[in-house]
Write a protein that binds this DNA or RNA. Structure first.
Lengths: 331, 331
DNA sequence: TGGTGCTCGGAAATCGCTTGCCGAGCGTAA
DNA sequence: TTACGCTCGGCAAGCGATTTCCGAGCACCA
């Protein structure tokens, strides 16, 4: 079923059929003809060929989204927001999974370029390694040059690219202050790999928030995953001193830390308190319920889309909002 | 940067450039020329226009994936598998979120048709409503006819479409038997909306598994979500009799049930035991740890792709495997 | 040396659609 | 009645690739 079949069936020319169907601006088509075309199209169950349209119009209607791991609720929350905003903007989402691998990320950016996506959203996981980063930067520049489209990164703004991040520093600082106010003095931070920027920001924000009302007695790196949190917590617990509070830089790690504590026979919050970051809904029913910082991840995703698509009126409040949620794990 | 720019730069014709780049079969191109073309392409950072290729070749290289809710770990697990398999098959994933809405599902199928996707995977959430279902069926048939491509549904096979589902009945039955063997006699089932087929299958399988060694004293419907589980459990606990075990047809609902019990001051597993289904990794650290049935959701997603893509050698073991995992919540 | 059969570049058709341009037809005003 | 200006179909030229087909050039054999 091509458009020309429809035109034939309606007894009009190709151009008229095209104009009738996508109601071309600054051109009107006779209502009677239009209806005939529409009827024929419906009759034949015509669906326009998206690729042909893209090529004829000179631009596609896709938005490329790159995330590292869809099973991680952090990514899937943001992806959900991206997807919703894309739908609202009338774009189709092309999804790529990068598996925390910069090479894959780069090849997905190339794919986005091949598809001439109208926008590109890359979610998180940027490492500080300069050399690799500049390779990514150049691939992104190629993408921009080829498509003229926008790029948004959810995470830190290390690249020369619009970036949108939750209020990592501020949220972590506020969390620290709240913890200090509750009388906690000594702290440990379970952070991600040292070059992981989001983790770094949160750790630094937390440190700032403590100011000199609290002392950081340990900083342990681990994978940004549940198991990473478990391992880091296990390591921490094997040491002589035990902090009042353990701050894991995200909820998934905090859950791992909780499990490690449990397995080690250390009670939370009695023996040690634990806090996370993100307030992932799926983790709401963890026991003890997790003290954390709520950030609007889905809205961050939506904002990233509006950035990538270069929309004008953009509400960037999502990048500022955060809420410290004190729950049982730090009681 | 078009291919003809590359051809010009390399001093060859368009056809030669094309052949050099995608190494056309049954045609060889002079190595020297080929290298010149490749060099020019690299130099100019040429990226083929996917839309143009799709139209010229007469087929796209995309696979459309429709899920209902990316923030639900059930869907994101499957989506992760789909995405991985698509990558392996060299396809690009087009992602659509249907929000449990049949109308949106249908329009996403139309979109897949517009993109002439090589395959279509629809994940779950099929309701038994005949009328709507047949509308979906007809849209799917249109898709098939237009693309000649395959469709796979993850869930029940109510439509005339290849379907792939985890071992819902078998797994639930095995769970029931394991629970019976531990001496539990009375049961309640928290299921999804009555027309939700996966929930129904699991409930029925569970019932079969009990045979006459156990008695179902309540069957409560709720949303297929955490809150649905919470509400259903609350309702159950308000009744006079209390079952030995509550089986929620998925983990997310089971977590809600756990929370409801906790809020009602009912201890698990002392006062009542709770079991779920899926064994979602993110929920592994719930306390009390959840008895459930592990099904290989990611591999189910992969299998769905091979079905949709019409691959020959397909390992369908993922649809048979299950493992009853007894944990603290039914101790 | 002439004929035959390859190999392999390049010209051109094609995919399905959009859109610039031309011109037919009609209404209106002088 | 003539001229002018609109409105609105349709022809045809792209968009950026792939692929068919043609023919030039060369090797090989008789």
């Amino acid at each position: 079923m091509t458009l020309s079949d429809v035109a034939k069936a309606a007894g009009v020319s190709l151009s008229t059929a095209s104009r009738a169907i996508n109601g071309s601006k600054d051109r009107t088509v006779n209502p009677e003809l239009r209806d005939r075309v529409l009827a024929a199209a419906a009759e034949l169950r015509y669906a326009p060929n998206a690729a042909a349209q893209a090529i004829a119009r000179g631009r596609s209607t896709t938005l490329s989204l790159i995330v590292h791991d869809l099973t991680d609720p952090y990514f899937s929350s943001i992806a959900a927001g991206v997807s919703r905003a894309a739908k609202a903007a009338g774009s189709t989402v092309i999804l790529g999974i990068a598996e925390h691998d910069l090479a894959q990320t780069m090849s997905l950016v190339e794919a986005a370029r091949s598809h001439r996506s109208q926008g590109l959203v890359i979610v998180g996981g940027l490492r500080a390694d300069t050399e690799l980063l500049s390779a990514l930067q150049s691939v992104i520049d190629d993408y921009r040059r080829a498509t003229g489209a926008g790029v948004a990164i959810v995470g830190q703004g290390v690249l020369d690219v619009a970036s949108v991040a939750p209020a990592n520093r501020e949220g972590a600082a506020a969390l620290a202050r709240a913890l200090v106010a509750r009388g906690n003095r000594t702290y440990a931070i379970l952070t991600g790999p040292s070059d992981h920027l989001t983790g770094r920001d949160r750790a630094e924000g937390f440190t700032e928030g403590l100011a000199d009302s609290g002392e950081i007695i340990a900083l342990i790196e681990g994978d940004f995953t549940r198991d990473g949190g478990y391992a880091a917590m296990t390591e921490l617990l094997s040491e002589a001193v035990r902090p009042d509070v353990v701050f894991a830089v995200n909820d998934v790690m905090a859950v791992g830390a909780l499990a490690a504590a449990r397995d080690a026979g250390v009670r939370v919050p009695e023996d040690v308190r634990v806090a996370g970051f993100d307030d992932i809904p799926t983790l709401r029913d963890i026991v003890p319920s997790l003290t954390t910082v709520r950030v609007p991840l889905e809205r961050i995703g939506e904002f990233a889309v509006s950035l990538a698509l270069g929309e004008d009126i953009t509400d960037e409040s999502a990048t500022q909002e955060y809420e410290v949620v004190l729950r049982d794990s730090t009681n």
